[in-house]
Design a protein around this nucleic acid. Structure first.
Length: 486
RNA sequence: CGGGGCGUGGCUCAGCCUGGUAGAGCACUCGGUUCGGGACCGAGGGGUCGAAGGUUCAAAUCCUUUCGCCCCGACCA
């Protein structure tokens, strides 16, 4: 197998990351046709190519939810005002972000409805009706839904007024079971992110001020984007008995006493698509991990002479062989575009592997394979092609993950003093691991002065014994991971 | 919600300062030659210049109002 060293420059149509990362992101989303702005302020249209990525993510997640005993259901989009108002902390957290429905047809509603920002309240109300005995537990329900949060500042995929997500809502007999569920689902998110999205994440606990409104504890997975900012990619909440008390979700326990259930909720959203873009993309556009790429291989036939009688049938055969093995393939046989144009287009859209085939290849019974991640080209014999393609897709998946891990390691720094901390945040941003005293005041001051927030306190974080808070010099309770975030 | 910027064919923009009846590139349609890293030639189609009002013989251009969007900051999956 020979390698071509002559890799052409990346196209210039997309703003380079180094010039303006935010602009680069928007350019990629729009040029790759993942999404577009809609006529509705703050809302986006997810285009077929972007939606195909979401569908692949959904399938991968749904499979995992089912495998751990969860079932899907669907709850209403509208929530009566009185339900939302029941849990004090929850209301306070979401009130500024809810959209109200005040009128139906021509009639003013007696009770206003909110468009769900999340469904704890309406699901809790139903659980109260369904749970009577410890034998009814646990309830392990997930729903795939849209939610609406009135946002002042929106960004495609990362924060839009309406977005798609899944929200799991479970009810358990004991506090221990609820905590176990909370951790299990966070673990599933981590495993999903790492194996399907090739995106390494840090699992940990949120600080009190970053916690979900109404939860006892919130845990998150945090990923590092290529501009050095962190992105919360998924959350899992232990709700304790907070919602159970308010919604009266009671059951008769094994000891005949009446108890409130222990709840959890957990979710990931279409924001994950933004995370993938900003984890793997380069100046040439999108780079998709093979496992969630709508097209894993694009076949570009070289149209020359009577190619429709020679090259094209061979390309079709190759496609059929790959499809038979479950590989997602696009055969780009348009004769309105040149091969070079197609190379650039599909690279921009992140297709992991390109297969070129022309008359010369047919003579030699070979094809050209070009990797999107390294942009390396190689000649591969037609014989044994399918296994070779599968092998390369797996190699790309792994390479993307390894590269992302390396990037994160290179952009993670420990800082025991505030001076060091600020130096890193001003310089090359990323995660900074620092001792923290646990005070919300210190946390807020650090944010005000450096824009960095506590992303989470990883489970694997070393104990902070003997260390002092970078802000107030008080005894540290933990080594927290700080970063500027999306 | 504060600061900045922008609304002109599908897209990116020029034209506005100094009013004179709308232009370029790309995209699109048709025909032909091409095609191994964003092809070329020829012929076409497409815009009441975000909206409303005003000034003027005449407004994309000047004035007023208004709507929308984008970017940067305070709140959030």
């Amino acid at each position: 197998m020979s390698q071509e060293t002559d890799i052409p420059d990346l196209p210039t149509e997309i703003t380079p990351q180094s010039q303006d990362f935010g602009r680069w992101y928007i350019d990629v989303v729009r040029r790759a046709e993942l999404a577009d702005y809609s006529p509705v302020k703050g809302c986006m249209v997810i285009r077929p190519y972007g939606y195909a990525i979401w569908e692949l993510m959904q399938q991968a997640l749904d499979k995992r939810f089912k495998a751990t005993g969860h079932v899907n259901a669907y709850f209403p989009l509208f929530i009566p005002e009185s339900l939302l108002m029941k849990e004090a902390e929850h209301v306070q957290g979401f009130a500024p972000q809810v959209a109200w429905v005040t009128q139906g047809g021509n009639e003013v509603l007696e009770e206003r409805l909110v468009v769900r920002p999340t469904s704890e309240t309406i699901i809790g109300t139903m659980y109260a009706k369904w749970v009577h005995s410890w034998r009814d537990l646990p309830i392990l329900i997930n729903q795939w839904a849209n939610v609406v949060r009135w946002e002042k500042v929106t960004r495609l995929f990362l924060r839009t007024t309406e977005f798609l997500w899944q929200e799991g809502h479970t009810a358990h007999e004991t506090a221990e079971e609820a905590q176990e569920e909370t951790m299990k689902m966070l673990g599933i998110y981590k495993e999903f992110a790492e194996t399907e999205l090739a995106m390494p994440v840090i699992e940990g606990q949120k600080s009190e001020s970053e916690k979900f409104a109404g939860a006892v504890n919130t845990y998150s997975i945090e990923a590092l984007m290529r501009d050095g900012r962190a992105l919360q990619a998924g959350t899992s909440h232990n709700l304790g008995q907070n919602f159970a008390r308010v919604f009266d979700i009671k059951f008769q326990a094994r000891d005949k006493s009446v108890q409130f259930v222990y709840g959890t909720s957990w979710g990931v959203s279409t924001r994950m698509i933004g995370a993938v873009i900003m984890t793997h993309g380069d100046d040439g556009g999108l780079i998709l991990p093979p496992r969630i790429a709508p097209y894993q291989v694009v076949i570009v036939p070289i149209p020359r002479g009577n190619w429709k009688e020679t090259v094209l049938p061979k390309a079709q055969t190759i496609r059929d062989d790959l499809v038979a093995r479950g590989v997602r393939v696009m055969l780009d046989d348009r004769d309105t575009q040149t091969p070079g144009w197609k190379y650039n287009e599909w690279e921009l859209r992140g297709v992991p592997l390109r297969l070129e085939i022309g008359p010369k290849d047919i003579e030699k019974s070979q094809v050209v394979l070009a990797r999107r991640d390294t942009r390396e080209k190689s000649f591969v014999p037609m014989d044994g092609l399918t296994p070779k393609v599968e092998e390369m897709l797996a190699a790309i998946q792994k390479a993307l993950y390894d590269r992302a891990v390396q990037f994160r390691e290179e952009h993670t720094t420990a800082a025991d003093t505030y001076a060091e901390f600020k130096a890193v945040m001003d310089g090359r941003p990323g995660f900074v691991i620092s001792p923290w005293c646990g005070s919300a005041t210190c946390e807020a001051d650090i944010k005000a002065e450096t824009q960095a927030t506590i992303r989470n306190i990883p489970f694997t974080s070393a104990p902070a014994t003997g260390k002092t808070c970078i802000k107030c010099d008080g005894a540290a309770i933990a080594l927290a991971w700080f970063a500027k975030s999306y």
